[in-house]
Amino acid sequence: MTNNSTTDQSSLPLGEMSEGQRGNLHNYILGIADNSLILGQRLGELCGHGPSLETDIAGTNISLDLFGQVRSYFQYAAQVSGDDTVTEDTLAFMRIEREYKNVLLVEQPNTDFGYTIVRQFLFDAYHLLFLRELEKSTDETLSAIAKKSIKEVSYHWRFSSDWIRRLGDGTSESHERVQEAVTDLWMYTDELFHQTEADQAMIAEGIGVDTSKLKDIYYKMISDVLEEATLEIPVGKYFHKGGKQGIHSEHMGYILSDMQYMQRTFPNMEW
């Protein structure tokens, strides 16, 4: 938010925002939260199935951190919506697929531990850079959530990059497997920096993060670790995006039918 003239001011109180501003803010929050929601869900699927008890417990910790963040964001988004019927749970469970704004990267399946770690690694680097900027947001709530989350995500990054080194520079089998995961998931990295309309509006207001400024340092961060891990940095020029606009991969429908099962089967009940 260095380029913004409103840097030193707090953003408008909710009551003074126009419909459009509120809508943009609402969508902006969902865009951040949905990444944590879907990645947390993916990690939750693995609870009890990890390569060792210790690693299992570590993965669940990351999932719990992410869901904790999701709840803070959604509770704030519910407030921003100005609609009493909107809650953290309606936001998590009652939207249709096209309304979820997470990037394609986080919905990719738990193919094996290599894919799980690479997905985490590619997201953590972005997540950390993003939160460090979001902490400077003129929106006090977002700034506070970011401040708390940075500590969690710093650990996620430490955990995933350590594992990248172990798998990359481990055995020939692990090297091959993790290289394949890096090569496969690479095409989802560019979308992290893609900006939607809500993003741009929020950047202009000093609330949102100008992710285009994070791109170089992101690729430097992950390339350094990959190099240390004796892995090749993919040269692929073809990238996929769409998640932020709600155009997801085919995996997404299954994630949602699983996640939303109770809410859809038994509407309007409390649990």
Partner: peptide, 10 residues
């Protein structure tokens, strides 16, 4: 290093 991280998590 892993022992430290695992200890933190466990």
């Amino acid at each position: 290093e892993m022992a430290l991280e695992n200890a933190r998590d466990v």
